[in-house]
Write a protein that binds this DNA or RNA. Structure first.
Length: 472
RNA sequence: GGCGGUAUAGCCAAGUGGUAAGGCAGAGGUCUGCAAAACCUUCAUCGUCGGUUCAAAUCCGACUACCGCCUCCA
C-alpha cells in the first residue's frame, strides 16, 4: 500500500515519497524555552516522535531536526523577572526539556539547533532577502514584503485582503507606521536599551521569530526537505512566513509535506491548553504525580491531528491499556520456561497478518487508533496462546518480539520480569506446601508479605508466578 | 466577519454506499481454596431536518452545537 500523509499545504492525503530513497529529512518546531514544557508542547513532541519512530520502523533513515527558540520577547521578559541573563534562562529550560522528554521516552533529535547559535547565518539570510527585494530595513528593523511573495496565504488558506483587515487590528500603531503593509512581518528587530542583541548591518538587534526556523531548517536539511511539523497554531502565520522567507530566498520549494498536530484541550469547554491562556500543566509537575509512560501512551495512541482531551478518565484508560500490554507480555514470558522448541505455523501466520494489518492502519496518515487496536489483538492472541497446555518457544518469542516492537513505536518499552528470584521462589514453594496442606491462613500470609514488597503472586495452571507491581 | 476542524454507546474512539472495529467502565459467566491474571458472553442505528439511492454513519442541501486559526502560542 505505502504510506500516505495529510498535507496541510493543500489539505489532501498524498502518497509519501521522500526526496532521497530510504531517507527522510524532517524539521519540527520546538519550544521557546522560557518555561517548562506543558503537556500541549509535549503532545507535539510525542506526536512527531511517534511519526518518526514509525518512519524508522518502515526502514527510513530519519534525520530529525528540532530547534529551540532561545531569544524573543518572552525570553527577555523571563530573564528580567528572574534577574538572570537570557542565555541562563535558555540553559535552564533546555536542560529541563531534555529531562522531561526523556521521561516521556522521546528519542533524542538528530540535532537541536538554537537560534542564538546561528545569528551569522540569520543575518546573511535576511541580507539576501533585502538584496532580492523581498525585505526592507527601516529604523533598525527589517520587514518582509509579504505581498511580494505571490503565494502568500496558501498554507494558511487565507487570502491577503482578509489578512490585511485582521492584521491591522492587532499590530501596534508604532509598528504599523514602519511597515509598508500591515501584513509584513519582522525579520530583524531593533534592540531596546539593555536588551540582548547582536551587531548587524541594520544596527544592534535580534532575529524575528520566523526567520530562525527558515535558516536552521535549510541549513541542516537543505533548501527543500521532506517533512515540516508543528502544532496547528503554527500553520499560520509562523509556517506561512517560514515558507515565504525560504522560497523567496532559494527559489525552490521549501517543504514537501506539512504536518500539523492538534491541540490538547482542557476543561468542560475543551479549551485549548496554552501558555498564554494560563490553563496549562507542565510535564515537570505532572510526572511527579503520574507515570510518565501513561502520559506518553495516552498521547501517542491519539492520532496526531485529533485533539486530546486531557482528563483523569483518559489517564485511567491509558493506565489500564498500558498495563494490559505489559501483562500480556509477562504472561507470555512466564511460559517460556516450559515451552518446547519449535513453533506453531498457524499462530505465527496470524501474528504476521496482524502485523500487516497494523502497518496498513499506520500507513493511513499514522492512524494510531486502528494501529493500536491491532496490537491489542496481538496481546489477546498472546494471552490465549499462553493458556495452552503445550506451547512452542519460537511462537512465544515471536509474539513477544512483535508486541515489544510495535509498542515501542508508541514509545512504550515492555519489560521482562525475570522470574528467577531465589528468595521469592523459596516463599512460593513454602506457600504452595501450605496450600497443599489447606493451611490457607499461612498461604495468604505469604502472599500479603510479598505484596508489601511490591511482588504480586498469581496461581496459574502452570504453577505460581510472580510479577513486580509498578509502584505508581 | 473570513477560513478550517469536529459532532458515532456512560466515556475514549474506528468506520467515505450494503444493515456499526477496538478500548475503558458496567453486567453475566469460565477458571481459582481465596485472589490475581486471562478468556467467553453481553451493551449504540451514528447532532437535527430534508433529499439522492434498491441500499447512507458514509453522497447532496439546509440547520444546530462546540473547537481552532486570522494576534504570542505545540
Amino acid at each position: 500500500m505505502g504510506l500516505k500523509v495529510y498535507n496541510s499545504l493543500n489539505n489532501e492525503m498524498e502518497v509519501f515519497e521522500p526526496l532521497q530513497a530510504g531517507k527522510v529529512n524532517m524539521y519540527v518546531c520546538g519550544p521557546t524555552v522560557y518555561n517548562y514544557i506543558h503537556i500541549g508542547n509535549a503532545r507535539s513532541i510525542v506526536a512527531f516522535d511517534t511519526i518518526r519512530r514509525y518512519l524508522e520502523y518502515l526502514g527510513y533513515d530519519v534525520n530529525y531536526v528540532s530547534n529551540f527558540t532561545d531569544v524573543d520577547d518572552k525570553m527577555i521578559k523571563a530573564a528580567k523577572e528572574d534577574g538572570i541573563t537570557v542565555p541562563e534562562v535558555a540553559d535552564k529550560f533546555i536542560k529541563a526539556y531534555f529531562e522531561d522528554t526523556k521521561a516521556l521516552n522521546v528519542e533524542p533529535a538528530t540535532l537541536n539547533p538554537r537560534a542564538t547559535e546561528n545569528i551569522p547565518d540569520i543575518i546573511k539570510f535576511v541580507q539576501a532577502l533585502i538584496d532580492q527585494g523581498y525585505a526592507y530595513s527601516i529604523d533598525g528593523d527589517v520587514y518582509y514584503r509579504a505581498r511580494k511573495f505571490k503565494t502568500y496565504g496558501e498554507l494558511g488558506h487565507e487570502d491577503l485582503d482578509t489578512l490585511e483587515s485582521g492584521a491591522s487590528q492587532h499590530v501596534s500603531a508604532d509598528e504599523l507606521a514602519k511597515k509598508e503593509d500591515p501584513i509584513d512581518f519582522a525579520l530583524w528587530k531593533k534592540a531596546k536599551p539593555d536588551e540582548i542583541s547582536w551587531d548587524s548591518p541594520w544596527g544592534k538587534g535580534r532575529p524575528g521569530w520566523h526567520i530562525e526556523c527558515s535558516v536552521m531548517s535549510t541549513k541542516y536539511l537543505g533548501d527543500t526537505f521532506d517533512i515540516h511539523g508543528g502544532g496547528i497554531d503554527l500553520e499560520f502565520p509562523h509556517h506561512e512566513n517560514e515558507r515565504a522567507q525560504s522560497e523567496a530566498k532559494t527559489g525552490k520549494r521549501f517543504v514537501n509535506y506539512w504536518l500539523h498536530n492538534g491541540f490538547v484541550t482542557v476543561g468542560d469547554d475543551d479549551e485549548k491548553m496554552s501558555k498564554s491562556l494560563g490553563n496549562f500543566v507542565t510535564v515537570h509537575d505532572l510526572i511527579k504525580k503520574i507515570d510518565p509512560q501513561v502520559l506518553r501512551f495516552m498521547m501517542s495512541t491519539t492520532q496526531y491531528r485529533r485533539p486530546i482531551r486531557f482528563s483523569q478518565a483518559g489517564l485511567d484508560e491509558a493506565t489500564a491499556n498500558l498495563k494490559k500490554l505489559q501483562t500480556a507480555y509477562t504472561n507470555l514470558e512466564y511460559r517460556l520456561k516450559d515451552a518446547e522448541e519449535d513453533g506453531d505455523p498457524k499462530v505465527d501466520q496470524e501474528i504476521r497478518q496482524l502485523q500487516a494489518d497494523f502497518q496498513d492502519a499506520m500507513d493511513d496518515d499514522f492512524n494510531v487508533q486502528n494501529g493500536i487496536a491491532k496490537v491489542y489483538e496481538i496481546a489477546k492472541l498472546g494471552n490465549v496462546y499462553a493458556e495452552r497446555p503445550f506451547v512452542f518457544k519460537e511462537t512465544i518469542e515471536l509474539i513477544m518480539q512483535r508486541l515489544k516492537q510495535l509498542s515501542s513505536i508508541f514509545g512504550i518499552e515492555l519489560s521482562a520480569t525475570a522470574f528467577n528470584d531465589a528468595d521469592v521462589e523459596k516463599l512460593i514453594a513454602e506457600r504452595n506446601q501450605a496450600r497443599a496442606d489447606h493451611n490457607f491462613q499461612r498461604s495468604d500470609e505469604i502472599r500479603d508479605e510479598l505484596k508489601e514488597q511490591g511482588i504480586v503472586l498469581e496461581d496459574t495452571s502452570q504453577g505460581t508466578r510472580f510479577r513486580r507491581e509498578n509502584k505508581r
